[in-house]
């Protein structure tokens, strides 16, 4: 362990004492464990056979066999299957809408001296300063007939001014000469954006896309406000209902009809499987984008 920490110490820095190093490594290990351990327990319990869950009297800490029964139950076509599809759909469409609107506006407002770009940018920046308020927004959404429509989960939060400003700052820092010469050669702005600017902006696009996607996947309160029909619930609401609030899972509602009558996984394993389903997409996509975070956040913080 200590060799991992000790490479590349500058010559002038004194080597810490053994207790100091031990203390530091313990603290770091404890921090990592505090994040990883709950996730580990949840994943393990969701994959444990009924005997292990019953034997442990609850959550399983030590692996005792493996069973995918809980996942088979969940994806048998019941409430959870539907909620996953809703969440995936809203996330995919929402991210596409958000990213398109954000990239277009960020590029459209990124050329110094273009017509009206200052007042337009100002109307975007102004949204940082105040929120419309929950009730007026709710009334608007219901006025335009979006209650119980999936679009209510997308349109009100589709454009995030912070993301837009981050992208615009990035576009403005790109070398402008290539775009200028393309323009002289008669290329349309659309061509310049898609052929020149976007290929140079993969990192920032990925980060902003991830921010939007995670926002849609995790969206909870929007759905509380705007979705009354529980057949249209996204996954986060199902997670709250059946796991956080612990409402009993009746086998007919959560588990699909297909698996009725067959052996079903213990309640707790199914609950933990719902948690895992909510968790997995985030943890899968996140490492792919992680290396770009610092750039995105710093541009936002410094140039915003």
């Amino acid at each position: 362990m200590s060799t991992l920490f000790d490479n590349r110490r500058p010559v002038w820095a004194e080597r810490p004492s053994l207790p100091a190093r031990a203390a530091k490594n313990t603290v770091l290990a404890a921090i990592a464990a505090a994040v990883v351990f709950p996730i580990y327990v949840v994943v393990l319990t969701s994959l444990s056979p009924a005997s292990a869950v019953n034997g442990a009297g609850g959550l399983v800490v030590v692996p005792q066999g493996i069973s995918f029964q809980a996942y088979a139950d969940l994806f048998g076509g019941g409430v959870v299957t539907r909620a996953v599809l809703v969440s995936l759909g809203v996330t995919a469409v929402g991210t596409l809408v958000s990213l398109t609107a954000t990239v277009l506006a960020a590029y459209g407002l990124s050329r110094p001296g273009s017509l009206w770009h200052r007042p337009l940018l100002f109307t975007i920046l102004l949204t940082f300063l105040f929120a419309p308020g929950m009730i007026p927004l709710y009334l608007l959404v219901s006025e335009v007939g979006l209650i119980d429509s999936y679009w209510s989960l997308i349109l009100p939060t589709a454009v995030n001014a912070f993301n837009l400003v981050v992208m615009r700052a990035f576009f403005m820092n790109l070398p402008g000469e290539i775009a200028d010469s393309a323009r002289v050669d008669g290329a349309s702005e659309w061509t310049i954006l898609t052929r020149l600017v976007l290929p140079m902006s993969k990192g920032v696009t990925a980060v902003v896309g991830l921010f939007y996607a995670v926002g849609y996947w995790n969206a909870f309160f929007n759905a509380i406000l705007y979705i009354n029909d529980n057949a249209k619930w996204p996954l986060q609401l199902v997670l709250r209902q059946y796991v956080q609030q612990g409402q009993q899972l009746s086998s007919s509602s959560v588990v699909g009809d297909a698996v009725q009558g067959t052996a079903s996984a213990p309640n707790l394993a199914i609950q933990m499987a719902i948690v895992v389903v909510a968790l997995v997409p985030v943890t899968v996509v996140y490492p792919l984008v992680q290396k770009h975070f610092t750039k995105g956040v710093i541009i936002g913080a410094v140039k915003g």
Binding site: A105, L115, T123, L155, T157, W190
Partner: peptide, 18 residues
Amino acid sequence: DWQLLLMALPAIGLLAVF
């Protein structure tokens, strides 16, 4: 600049409405 303005329109429209 009409192309640039057109590009800014969807985001501005969404913010205006919502």
